[in-house]
Nucleic acid binder design. Structure first.
Lengths: 196, 196
DNA sequence: AAGTAAACTGTCAAGTTAGACAGTAAACTA
DNA sequence: TAGTTTACTGTCTAACTTGACAGTTTACTT
């Protein structure tokens, strides 16, 4: 049967290194050399595992989408026993390093490359949609009497506020920026309380 | 006195082309060839006007920061006679093409490059701060009796919701995404009404 | 121990990119 | 018209980047 394949594992490692480089240099700036150095491998190995550049970018798109989707699932499971909008907000804003900020940065970089790699659009769109869906369901579950549309809007808003906060991380902004988004999310959540 | 200088004008044109390319290919992916083609000039001219690559990136940082600041000023002036949070939200979300979405995309790309170009941090931080300040003052002006901190939070929230909406534009998302941010911003604004 | 399938390495060729600089053309002044 | 300043072009070099592929090593099977 020959040497055992570590392709699945290696692929993940390389994609992780790719993710780091895209976050730092942008999609086209993440060269094979950068990725190889980051992954601790020789350059030709990158190609061996992920194929040529286009295949790599598309694989990264799938990877980011999968990661976002599985993070959504983790969020859903984590809040299954402790529902409540409040807990959703805490999970998003006060998850100390549990949610990898590279994913958001990388996601944005890929979004901006959709024109060059149209195949990226669907996975990116779908994975964000599931993220929103999870948030919406959490909000709906904790406010069964509230207006359905209002819940969707609040959920979208909370997620979007989180996204912006995450996007500013490389800037090392004053803490007030993060706090404001956090409190704005809480305010949004409160709009459901008063109506119920 | 020799041939009249068009440097100021050309510089702006080249920076505009640079902005377009960064939005499309990322900071490191925006090559001189791309920029030259976009600007309709020969490659060496880019260098003539903006200097080497590092100088170009820093110049773009200043340019984006200046543009953001002047857009903030325009917003301030436009809403001077028609204050009100509602009008702020309309101006942000329903400005049909008046606010260039490339600026936001480019801003994000530059934020992610702060580690490679540390000098970018200050202008990016300062210009976003003035954007927030303008929004805060508009909110404060229309709700003089409301809690000051609440106004700041709402203003931050509205701006951040707008930023996320703008960031998704290259994805061509379903209209509901944009609407949700818009309505979430309105809901945030309403939290001030009920308390006054 | 021989066979084998996969991971891994070394290296070359083609294309692209940034940087540098000499030189030309254009638009003004005296 | 001569001089001057600036915009602009052509072109060379060095470095970088991707793609390709032959060859080696590793780890498992029979």
């Amino acid at each position: 049967m020959g040497r055992p394949s570590v392709q699945d594992q290696r692929k993940k490692e390389v994609l992780d290194a790719f993710m780091t480089c895209v976050a730092l240099y942008g999609v086209e700036g993440a060269t094979l050399e950068h990725i190889a150095a980051e992954a601790g491998l020789k350059r030709p190995l990158i190609r061996h595992h992920l194929g040529n550049r286009k295949a790599m970018v598309l694989a990264l798109g799938e990877h980011i989408a999968d990661t976002l989707s599985s993070q959504s699932e983790m969020l859903r499971v984590a809040l299954e026993d402790h529902p409540g909008v409040r807990n959703l907000i805490e999970a998003l804003f006060n998850s100390d390093g549990e949610l990898d900020p590279r994913i958001n940065i990388c996601y944005q970089a890929l979004v901006n490359s959709v024109e060059n790699y149209p195949e990226l659009r669907k996975p990116l769109l779908d994975s964000m949609e599931t993220f929103y869906k999870v948030a919406i369901n959490i909000v709906l579950a904790s406010h069964p009497n509230a207006d359905k549309q209002a819940c969707e809007i609040v959920a979208h808003g909370i997620v979007n506020l989180f996204i912006t906060t995450d996007a500013f991380i490389p800037l090392k902004p004053p803490k007030t920026w993060g706090y404001s988004s956090y409190f704005a999310a809480l305010k949004l959540a409160e709009t459901l309380e008063t109506k119920s």
